[in-house]
């Protein structure tokens, strides 16, 4: 038996890709998983980048929270796995 080396990064690694789409730093946002209801900082998500796109998964249930695909002309963003993202508006 070989121990599984984690193949994911933490959610902070998504900062660059998400900055292209949102004007705020989403890695500090609080997200609620649409699958299991877990609520936590987006930075706690497990980020898979060795793939045709970027996939963030819930650290509680491994459900997909967010997918980002960059094509030569567009960025596709799928947020179906998040019930909400809570972004602090306080300075």
């Amino acid at each position: 038996m070989t121990a599984d080396v984690p193949t994911y990064l933490d959610g902070n690694a998504a900062a660059g890709a998400l900055r292209e789409v949102f004007a705020v730093d989403l890695t500090a946002a609080i997200g609620r998983c649409n699958g299991c209801g877990r609520t936590g900082a987006f930075a706690e998500a497990r980020l898979y980048v060795d793939a045709p796109g970027m996939v963030a998964r819930c650290s509680g249930c491994d459900g997909v929270l967010l997918r980002v695909v960059n094509t030569p002309t567009d960025t596709y963003l799928d947020l179906r796995g998040l019930t909400y993202l809570r972004v602090s508006s306080a300075e």
């Binding site: 193949t7 994911y8 497990r46 060795d50 793939a51 796109g53 996939v55 998964r57 491994d62």
Partner: peptide
């Protein structure tokens, strides 16, 4: 043989 993965194995 690169390993691509969008989630846990």
């Amino acid at each position: 043989f690169p390993v691509l993965s969008a989630g846990p194995t």
